[in-house]
Design a protein around this nucleic acid. Sequence first.
DNA 1: AATGACTGCAACCGCGGGGCA
DNA 2: CTGCCCCGCGGTTGCAGTCAT
Length: 191
Amino acid sequence: MEKEGKSHVKRGLWKPEEDMILKSYIETHGEGNWADISRRSGLKRGGKSCRLRWKNYLRPNIKRGGMSPQEQDLIIRMHKLLGNRWSLIAGRLPGRTDNEVKNYWNTHLNKKSSSRKQNAPESVEATPFIDKPVMSTEEVRRSHGEGGEGEEEVDTTWMNRIGSPLPLITHYPDTLVFDPCFAFTDFFPLL
DNA sequence: AATGACTGCAACCGCGGGGCA
DNA sequence: CTGCCCCGCGGTTGCAGTCAT
């Protein structure tokens, strides 16, 4: 079959008409098999492009606009824990997409964190802001008891490494707002 | 008003993983 | 086991809008 074919595949920004076509097609036929969707809908777009457009823009319940302080806080803390696992982080932010979270991090938070590092007080230097995730994906999985239903046996080593079960809040009180509803055990089931 | 620099976001690219024949 | 196809992820690029001069 024809691969996403270089020659006649349209690129660049999506037009409102294209959005409408894709949206109505998916509403009628459902998601799945994006290569097929791009062919059958009549859009001259690659399957990947259709998928991206739907997931990041057209899907229902997409939240647009600025991040709330709570969302910022969550992103920062999740990033510290997981690193650049944008899809996982976005999974904890209803209506936000991995692309949006990634962009937000790269444009806003990454900058913020690096500028903080520059004038960081000693106490902050002791807990570097972003460089390394506290847990690798593997560690997250293990701590969730993957491979052994040891439930309730929560591995708390990440807490020790962060230094506190409420990471960062004491170091950056101007930016971070502790959300008492959030517990890390809350997102483990998603992994 | 013109224009060059900067910023933020949408979209693309390449790669790896999973499912299936 | 192998190869193919599709999907999803993370990194990167490109462009439109905004700001500064």
